[in-house]
Design a protein around this nucleic acid. Structure first.
Length: 515
DNA sequence: ATATCTGCAGGGCGTGATCA
DNA sequence: TGATCACGCCCTGCAGATAT
């Protein structure tokens, strides 16, 4: 592992090492190929009338951007661009001489134009960004890659000319970590078949018109000293020369093996360092810290890993609920003198509890109880329906206000499409053709009992239970006692004003939280 | 109101042309 | 072929616009 402390912000402020960075060869190929159409001099701008920039021109900014993109993507090449500034802050951390912010945005835009960065919509509707030419589609692993020594982040490297940088990067990638290779590049490509810009001859690749220009570059590179280890410089190249071959002049470069990193390496994670939630949402993160401090639980955010999880989890949660959870934590700390072992778990629960309490009130207020619990009437099952509804509400990530508005609208339209119809005698108990009815009628005045239930608007579901129990009882009990029992139970049963002809598979959450 | 993003001026580099 | 030059775009730093 070649990780060294550089004069970048990572090194100076945090005393942290800068690691090598992985880049796929294919990506580099395409990056350099953006020059292929250079002569067209096509321009782009951020907005109509804005500053024009060359679309097919590779710049210093592009190179820094490429390195930082590969640093901040995950193992599948996905990169979070919800806050591009966060990516720029990382660039400022890793490079000794970072490019300016304006150039950074311009380079990003250019990468999108060239489809080096792809944006795709995921199943949940979020836009995600992915580095193109990253995965090997067949193996579903990262494609052939090169580990770039951290010298690419140094000031010395940054101050080289563009042509010098391009040559180093291209040749270094070709060496691919193997120290024995001597890289040779013709000045002119005699073979006319299509070549990627990198291999189209050095004169064309480096935008030079004369052999002497190339030899100037090579002479400079021959002297080039870069840090191999922390505070130790060495020559980047063992040898550089311009020699005459049978196809004209060619450049030969051999890298100092101390700068090369073999591709077999175990510390994979060190090369990727994706942007974390705290840096993507710095504003929200500082809000959380402020609130936590206010409640005397600022310690909650002393751990980087937990901070990231909390930022992610709490982002869609309303301020009111966050404060409630922090308040609960404060009470806990007051009592036990210490934060719970798993504060995230406690926060989650206290938010869900509070959310459900508020949601229950809203349900009652907008008159949605009967729809939430539909089609269940028994207490345990109604509980399940309520739980399922509140899960859907949580998952929707809507604020309580929005939920309330949506519910009011939905209830309104439900009342129009499914008006309350009065109960009919036939809704109560078993019908006249059934065995149950025939049996009961032999012993009791069942018709008069049904009429009584109808007048009282008893919930027929519960009446049904009553009638069934009467049928069982009548076989070994005095009918008179059974009849008195029924009449006595009737007033205790729940009432329902009427029936709605809702389909049996009706679920309120599907209406309120769809799309 | 603050953070993020884009425009602008002028110096200097990158590109490719001219001249010997 | 090599030395030098000219044009225009990149680059920085800051101002101003736009988004949250």
């Amino acid at each position: 592992m070649k990780a060294l402390i550089l004069g970048n912000r990572l090194g100076i402020v945090e005393s942290k090492a800068t690691y090598p960075v992985k880049i796929t060869s294919l990506f580099l190929n395409q990056l350099f190929d953006m020059n292929l159409n250079f002569s067209s001099r096509m321009k782009f701008s951020f907005r109509d009338g804005g500053t024009l920039r060359l679309k097919d021109h590779l710049t210093h900014a592009d190179l820094q951007l490429a390195f930082i993109l590969f640093r901040c993507c995950n193992a599948y090449g996905y990169i979070d661009l919800t806050n591009r500034k966060a990516l720029y802050r990382r660039l400022e951390n890793e490079f000794e001489s970072p490019i300016s912010e304006g150039q950074f945005y311009a380079a990003l835009e250019k990468f999108s134009h060239h489809q080096l960065i792809l944006s795709e919509e995921s199943a949940d509707g979020d836009i995600r960004h992915r580095l193109n030419y990253f995965m090997n589609e067949k193996t579903n692993k990262i494609g052939h890659y090169v580990l770039f020594h951290p010298f690419v982040f140094t000031k010395v490297f940054h101050e080289l000319t563009l042509a010098e940088k391009k040559l180093i990067i291209s040749a270094y990638a070709q060496a691919s970590g193997s120290s024995k290779k001597i890289i040779t590049r013709n000045l002119k490509q005699v073979d006319k078949t299509f070549r990627h810009a990198q291999f189209s001859g050095l004169l064309s690749f480096l935008h030079k018109s004369q052999k002497s220009h190339i030899s100037d570059i090579l002479n400079n590179l021959a002297q080039l000293l870069l840090p191999v280890e922390t505070k130790t410089n060495a020559k980047l190249l063992d040898s550089v020369q311009l020699v005459k071959g049978k196809n004209g002049y060619k450049a030969e470069l051999k890298f100092n093996s101390e700068f090369l990193i073999p591709v077999v390496n175990k510390d994979q994670q060190k090369y990727y360092n994706p942007l974390d939630a705290c840096s993507l949402y710095p504003k929200f993160f500082s809000f959380l810290k402020r609130e936590a401090d206010f409640y005397g639980i600022g310690e909650l955010f002393s751990d980087q890993h937990l901070s990231n999880r909390l930022v992610k989890r709490l982002r869609p949660v309303s301020v009111r609920l966050i404060r409630h959870a922090f308040h609960d934590l404060m009470e806990y700390v007051k009592e036990k003198g210490i934060l719970p072992r798993n504060p995230e778990y406690m926060i989650k629960h206290s938010i869900e509890d509070k959310f459900n309490t508020i949601l229950d009130k809203v349900i009652t207020k907008v008159g949605a109880d009967e729809f939430v619990r539909y089609p269940e009437t028994r207490e345990e099952l109604v509980k399940e329906r309520k739980w399922s509804f509140s899960q859907a509400a949580l998952k929707s990530k809507l604020g309580i206000k929005k939920i309330r508005i949506r519910m009011e609208q939905t209830i309104k339209s439900l009342n129009r499409s499914y008006p309350v119809l009065p109960w009919d005698v036939s809704d109560y108990g078993a019908g006249p053709t059934t065995y149950q009815y025939q049996e009961l009628r032999k012993f009791l005045d069942i018709d008069s009992i049904k009429r009584e239930a109808l007048i009282e608007k008893v919930d027929p579901f519960y009446y049904g239970d009553l009638e069934y129990n009467a049928l069982l009882a009548i076989r070994n009990t005095n009918p008179k006692v059974v009849e008195d029992w029924i009449r006595g139970e009737l007033p205790k049963l729940p009432r329902l004003p009427g029936k709605r002809l809702l389909p049996y598979n009706f679920r309120l959450e599907n209406l309120v939280f769809s799309n």
